[in-house]
Design a protein around this nucleic acid. Sequence first.
DNA 1: ACGAGAACCTGTTTGC
DNA 2: TGCAAACAGGTTCTCG
Length: 277
Amino acid sequence: MPELPEVETVRRGLALRMEGRRLARVEQRRPDLRFPLPPRFRERLEGRRVERLGRRAKYILVHLDGGETLLVHLGMAGRMVLVEPSARVARDPHDHVVFVLEDGTEIRFNDARRFGTMDIVADDRLFDHKLLKELGPEPLGNEFSGPVLEERLAGRRTPLKAALLDQRVVAGLGNIYVSESLFWAGLSPRRLAGTVKGPRAERLAAAIRDVLERAIAAGGSSLRDYVQASGELGYFQHEWAVYGRAGEKCPGCVCTLGIRQIVQSGRSTYYCPARQR
DNA sequence: ACGAGAACCTGTTTGC
DNA sequence: TGCAAACAGGTTCTCG
């Protein structure tokens, strides 16, 4: 669900509340999410101070004192629900992990589908962690460019759509932002990934960066169950050019075809067949 | 080795 | 209106 812009929005919201504070109490309300939580999960977190909140791809990195980091992935439907100390809001059955700060503020990890993940990792081996080590470049980082993207797509005989969902190619895109990026780059989601070279790769890298930056500026896309840590809604869904707009007129050209919806590797893809080649 | 599809789990939307 | 099927922002595993 949450893709890079939503995760970044949540990270920023949580940073305001969590950085510099201690995790006074941690409640683990079931043994597993997508995978089992690590042994002694609660004991290893209680009393630790949150130094800083970082992000890698769709993972939130809660850097703790004592040289360890809590890794959090929101999966498809995961949320971090902030509850003020004064607010007596009833627990939801899907609040699987609750972090209570020194001042009584609660951060509830809520994830009905349980596709989310958490782990505790030693800082000196953080990027060797199996969930992080294969990830491709950060699309908003300096290391991302047309030539880098071209190299990562080279030789791939899968549709471009599928390749961009592969977190080893570029890290952080999901189903919405792949469709949006391809629209702005003018590239067909059905094109063979390995054919994206030179100016096309440049356009695609630029489009990815631009769409993600605009989405973060809008606080992400709120749809069904996604909300910012603060509880506010993001509003980038109103700026979607193609996602969820099957049959509507293409916003970028005069064609009469309208936006088409197809299914690729089991997921919906939206695109303008006239503008995107 | 690579790519397509199923699987994981629950809630919401769609269609008959 | 009611019910069942289809679908949902992600990732990993299996199979060909």
